[in-house]
């Protein structure tokens, strides 16, 4: 991220040397009311962004008494809600399903995206490649619509199959373009000479192109992984069998739409308050994203830019 921020100008304002280490002389110091307004605005934005997360996380740990008394923040804590939902089989199974879909989906998406990107690199040498590229790019301009996609998935017999959550979105045209652009930025002499030395395409791809592209592959894998983890609508329409639901659908059912929570609790324990249980489900569904976030934030910003230039 640092590379994107304005570089500090070496000139310094004489009187503000300590407080504003990089303020250029010409910039001038804003008046006190303006500074105050900025501080207040930023504090407000940070509060609005963070408070919901903090509140939900805190309340998921609230003890029975704290949950009952309400307030902006709980006062005493317990792990009952987590014990209850992780002891029941609905949430744990949904988490496993989501993890499985994300892992398998991301792997397959990466394989198909990178191979297509490699195949479409040399549009000049390979007759037809240009045409295929245009076909792929055009898909970014329109979508077929909800019903035709549904009818297709149904006629392929993928309803109630986990494949319905992976295959229809296997390759994102946007991601493919980002990867292809990266591949094309690799030193072409390297690929040419490998070719002259008789290396096969498969070898050039796996031993030269992929290892040199780790940065962009990380970005795209994160894009796909977050996408698979967050996917909701496809699972909702393609999976009728509730035992196959991923975590997002379970979350919708029991938290957003407020179905009775009895079925997601561990059977043998006294149930914690409903609200605490709901918060715990939210937290469990969010944790993988929060774990990925530090990497994601760094890489995604770069990835977006790489894509945006070509977009």
């Amino acid at each position: 991220m640092a590379a994107l921020l304005p570089t500090a100008t070496p000139t310094r304002g004489p009187q503000d040397r300590r407080r504003y280490p990089s303020r250029p002389v010409w910039m001038g110091v804003p008046s006190k009311p303006i500074q105050a307004a900025k501080v207040v605005t930023i504090a407000f934005i940070v509060l609005v962004m963070l408070y919901p997360f903090v509140y939900v996380i805190a309340m998921s740990f609230a003890s029975r008494e704290a949950a009952a008394s309400g307030g902006l923040f709980p006062t005493s804590f317990s792990l009952d809600a987590y014990r209850s939902i992780l002891g029941g089989d609905v949430v744990t199974r949904a988490m496993l399903v989501s993890i499985g879909i994300t892992a398998v989906g991301t792997t397959l998406s990466m394989i198909f995206t990178t191979t297509l990107a490699y195949g479409l690199m040399r549009t000049r040498d390979v007759p037809g490649a240009k045409f295929v590229l245009v076909l792929v790019l055009c898909t970014m301009l329109f979508g077929a619509g909800i019903i035709p996609n549904y009818l297709l998935v149904r006629s392929l017999g993928m309803l109630d199959s986990y494949w319905s959550l992976i295959i229809p979105g296997l390759i994102s045209a946007f991601n493919m373009v980002v990867v292809r652009n990266f591949f094309m930025g690799l030193p072409s002499e390297l690929l040419e000479s490998a070719r002259l030395d008789g290396a096969s395409d498969l070898r050039i791809f796996t031993q030269i192109v992929l290892p040199l592209s780790k940065a962009v592959l990380a970005v795209i894998a994160l894009f796909y992984a977050v996408g698979y983890w967050n996917a909701f609508f496809n699972a909702m329409i393609y999976l009728n069998d509730t035992t196959k639901w991923p975590i997002q659908v379970v979350l919708n059912q029991y938290v957003v739409q407020g179905s009775a929570l009895t079925s997601i609790q561990a059977p043998d324990q006294p149930p914690p308050p409903g609200q605490t249980l709901q918060m715990a489900v939210i937290v469990v569904a969010t944790i993988p994203i929060l774990l990925l976030y530090p990497f994601a934030q760094r890489y995604f910003t770069k990835g977006v830019l790489t894509g945006a230039i070509k977009g």
Binding site: T115, Y118, G119, L120, D125, G128, V136, D201
Partner: peptide, 8 residues
Amino acid sequence: TYLFIVPG
């Protein structure tokens, strides 16, 4: 190369 293109 076509083997790379065809699946996609």
